[in-house]
Structures are given as C-alpha cells and as structure tokens.
Simulated scan of single mutants.
Amino acid sequence: LIIGIWGGPNKIYAAFKFFLYTLMGSLLMLVALIYLYTQSGGSFALADWYKLPLSSTAQTLLFFAFFAAFAVKVPMWPVHTWLPDVHVEAPTGGSAVLAAIMLKLGAYGFLRFSLPILPDASQEWAWLMIALSLVAVVYVGLVAMVQQDMKKLVAYSSVAHMGFVTLGFFVFSDLGVSGAIVQMIAHGFVSAAMFLAIGVLYDRVHSREIADYGGVVNTMPNFSAFALLFVMANCGLPGTAGFVGEWMVILAAVKSNFWVGSAAATALIFGAAYSLWMFKRVYLGPVGNDNVKGLTDLNPREFLVMASLAIAVLFMGVYPKPFTDVMDASVADLLRHVAISKLN
C-alpha cells in the first residue's frame, strides 16, 4: 500500500510485482504449516514442531516450501529481481521500512523454522544455501557496481549484504550464526540510513541519478559527513556496524571451508568499490550543476534522524557485546538441537 499509493511513476507495477512474488512463496509456506499442524496432532506451537520425527523426504519437501517463502523475502539470488524495482518506486519511508525490517523476516524464518524444525534437511541442503549466498555476495556485488541510480545501487548492495546472513546460518557454527544475526541488525541500521540519505537528496533535486549530482559536499557539508559515515559502514569499515557481522561470518566460513570464506571476503572489496565510487561521484569534486549549487544543508528534523542512525551505527561497531551476549544462549541451544538430530 505504501508503494502503490505514495510511490513513483511505475508504483502499481512495482507493488504488484512485490505482492505476487511474496504471495507465491507464502502459499507454499502455508501448505507446509498445515502439514506440520496435522503431523503434530493439531498444534501450531513451534515447541511441538521442533520435536516432530519427520522422514527425510518430508523434511526436504518442507524445507523447500519454507525456502520459497523466506528466499523471496531475504531476497536470495535468483528470486531477488523484485527488490530493485520496488525500491526505485517506493517512497523514502517505504524503502527504509522494507530494507531495515522486512528483509529480516526471511532470515528470521530460516532461523526459527527451517533450522530447528527441519535440521536434517538443513544439513543436507546447506551446500545449496551456501552456494546461493556466495552468488548473492559476489555476483550481485558486481551488478551493484554498474548501477546509475543511487537507490538501485543500494538495493543491490542489500542483496549482497543479506547473502552474509544466510551464509552464516548454514555454516552451523556459533560464530557464524551469531555473526549473521548481528549482520541482520547492523544492515537494518545501515541500509535504512543509506535510503534516508538518498531521500534527503531526492527531496531537494527530485532525481536519483548519480550523474545529476557532483560536489554536494560544497553545499551540504553536515549532510555529507553523515553520508560518508553510512557509506563507510556499507563498505564494512572496522568501527562501524557493517563490519562486525560480516567479519564474524567470514571467520566462521573460513573455519568451515577456506575457499567459501575467501569468496565471501570479496564482498568487502566490491562493497568498497561501489559505495566509494558512488560517494566520489555524488559528493566530491567541484559543484556539478545549478541544482547542486542551490542545495540547502540538513534541517533540524533531518539532522536528528541522521544523528540517531549515526550513533547506532558507531555504537554497534565499537561495542557489539550487548548484542552478542543476548543471543549466545539461544544460538548455542539451536546448534545443539541441530547437532543432536544429526546424531539420531
């Protein structure tokens, strides 16, 4: 509704595309939920589903039914194609909610449904999940590099960053799962900040094209400082929220398989390439045109929002311990449950 009512010129197309993608995946998930309800003797309690003795065939079918719903939401490659269209048409607030909150629902689904209810199938198909995650990290990172629209660039970078989340879940280690959850939270702050920063520029110039800007730092110095921090966090700079989760997942992946970890680490290179190149073309250098010359710096409302996100990004990057402490017991319990089912 947010996209369809307040979106851009192709808002109806984008809203329908989003709706249809989500609907197709969710219908398969609904079938899986009904099957689990019948198998558990009429219970929708997750605790009951965790104890179900499901056959390997049933687990595999249910795994892919859940996968259909959660992969679209994350979104994983190759069902990620709705995301750039939807972000481009969505208003700034819609993009922030979509990137910061809704994409996390898919990853949360893997964590609460696929892994504990279907541990055998999760182990069996982990190679596929890891492969798709690496494609998202590497290939989609390269796609982001050639974008001319700022929103499309950040949308593709979201797909690449969320690839770390699914990768972390399916290496089955404390470090990997904890890193993936930290990455979910960090990406919520960083991607929302990136989209809101683009919204600040769009409100003034009514263009998202990188070519329509240049030298913004000359007319909006305060805003440019915030934008630089968020771009650095998007690259995964140490000391920012974007670094912590990605680094934990890369370490866990290297421990599991050196080549998987090496492929994942390329995201830090690609992330720096597309983020910093965009920053250079939009913010640095001489004033690009009359539109940029007439820009005004942040108003108090915009400053408050940017400062709040900046504090969150820096706090989580410098001191992530409160986040990891809270999740440690749950992560250990989940991995113990998956390991026990493998032994059985």
Rank of each mutant, 00 (worst) to 15 (best):
1 L>W: 11
3 I>T: 12
5 I>S: 06
6 W>K: 07
15 A>L: 03
20 L>E: 00
26 S>Y: 10
29 M>L: 15
30 L>H: 03
34 I>N: 03
34 I>L: 11
35 Y>V: 13
36 L>C: 05
41 G>T: 01
44 F>Y: 10
46 L>R: 07
47 A>H: 11
64 F>N: 00
65 A>T: 03
68 A>D: 09
73 K>L: 04
74 V>S: 02
96 A>Q: 13
99 A>Y: 07
103 L>Y: 04
106 G>D: 04
107 A>K: 13
111 L>K: 06
117 I>R: 09
119 P>V: 01
123 Q>C: 03
125 W>M: 06
128 L>S: 09
129 M>G: 02
129 M>H: 03
135 V>T: 10
155 A>D: 02
156 Y>S: 05
159 V>D: 09
160 A>P: 00
161 H>Y: 06
170 F>E: 05
173 S>N: 05
174 D>K: 08
178 S>M: 14
178 S>V: 08
187 H>I: 01
191 S>H: 07
196 L>H: 07
197 A>G: 11
199 G>I: 05
203 D>N: 13
210 I>S: 15
210 I>M: 11
211 A>R: 15
228 L>T: 05
231 V>G: 03
235 C>F: 05
236 G>M: 11
238 P>D: 14
243 F>A: 10
243 F>N: 10
246 E>D: 09
247 W>N: 05
253 A>G: 03
256 S>C: 02
261 G>N: 08
266 T>P: 04
266 T>C: 02
271 G>I: 01
275 S>E: 11
276 L>V: 11
285 G>K: 03
286 P>N: 06
298 L>F: 09
298 L>T: 08
299 N>M: 13
305 V>N: 02
314 L>R: 08
316 M>Y: 06
322 P>V: 08
322 P>C: 14
323 F>K: 02
324 T>I: 13
326 V>A: 09
327 M>A: 05
327 M>I: 15
333 D>R: 14
338 V>M: 08
